[in-house]
Write a protein that binds this DNA or RNA. Structure first.
Lengths: 195, 195
DNA sequence: CTCCGTTCGTAACAGGCGTTACGGTAACAT
DNA sequence: ATGTTACCGTAACGCCTGTTACGAACGGAG
């Protein structure tokens, strides 16, 4: 195995370690040593790849952004109609399985850690605004007759609802099963006339 | 001033200190020393009133529960119709001003701190389930003709939406002004036929 | 083969953390 | 007035944290 392959493989392992610690142990236990232990390396390597602890959080958030972006772009491409695309994209933002549940936990953890940290909160806002614009674009395509304000209002209702239910389900999966979340999403889309 | 009055006044000051540190500095800076500094006392007093740091978080969450419960009960009592009550109760759950914005920050901070803590997460679930049941009750009163499943689905959509927008607005008030949140709420209630 | 630069493990540092122990002080009872 | 008790400030403990410094090992270049 070449050297660069080793490096990128270790980078991936480190990414997974950051992710899993934040997702499974929460923000407060996201320490350099915990990440090193999860990655099977030492704090020396971790500090070599990340200048400080804040960038661990930042990295997890950027990972979340990248993963969801790739997923929604695939879903958009695979969708037959704009309304199917809208539904598929919103659906993947809820906490329907263990994978998406962990994503919600990471989202919450980063948000909590970004409070009172200008740089981190800026990243949060960037990502959220991109997400909002995407859903607005999909909503506009799904309801071409709507004016901009209607589009913005309904898109906000939809992203807030899916993010909210993801947060609820992240902390209490038993009380918010996937079927309930999907029923909720379909009820909302139906109510707004987007079915 | 009597002694018990002093004590309860100091307890209130301590409560405010816990709250403000969590709301303004975030979960990670919610330390015993930071609370003591905010309350103008020493760590000795803090540790006298709270057995350990975890109960600081727990206290903030219970404070949030109490405050919102009292507020929604007032709003319910003051509402003319079931639908007005539903709207008023949902409305106060969004982040419309600095006060409610801080409440959303506390909600997020506690949730992030409760990950991987059985006792704290149990409190979170208790409170969220009570909140959900309240909104289900209000929804059933606002739409008596609905069956239980429809009530549960729409109530979930409403609490997820308001909690979600509160989380968004907590971290980016400029991008989610109160007027947008209210418009979103009214659009949702209208779409579900609850206006 | 030798040299060099990168990579990363080892070890330590200073600082902040939660928590505990102890002593002084102020209010109440007698 | 005096003893008692609850309250809380002081100070310290040990631990864990982020971060840094240093040296060894390894791969590539000449």
């Amino acid at each position: 195995m070449s050297r660069t392959a080793d490096r990128s493989a270790q980078g991936a392992a480190l990414s997974r370690a950051v992710w899993s610690v934040l997702a499974e142990q929460g923000l407060e236990r996201l320490t350099v040593r915990a990440v090193a232990a999860a990655a099977g390396c030492t704090t020396g390597l971790v500090m070599h790849r990340f200048p400080n602890r804040r960038t661990l959080l930042l990295h997890a958030r950027q990972l979340l952004h990248r993963v969801t972006r790739e997923r929604v772009e695939m879903l958009e491409a695979a969708a037959g109609t704009p309304r199917e695309a809208l539904r598929a994209v919103l659906r993947q933002g809820m906490a329907l399985d263990e994978r998406t549940r962990q994503e919600a936990v990471v989202w919450i953890g980063f948000l909590a850690g970004a409070i009172a940290d200008d740089e981190l909160i800026a990243e949060h806002r960037r990502n959220n605004r991109a997400w909002r614009e995407r859903v607005e674009r999909l909503t506009a395509a799904a309801a071409p007759e709507w004016n901009a304000e209607r589009v913005a209002t309904v898109a906000l209702a939809l992203i807030a609802m899916t993010e909210g239910v993801a947060a609820y389900a992240a902390a209490d999966p038993g009380a918010f099963p996937a079927a309930d979340q999907e029923r909720m999403l379909d009820a909302a889309l139906g109510a707004y006339g987007l079915t």
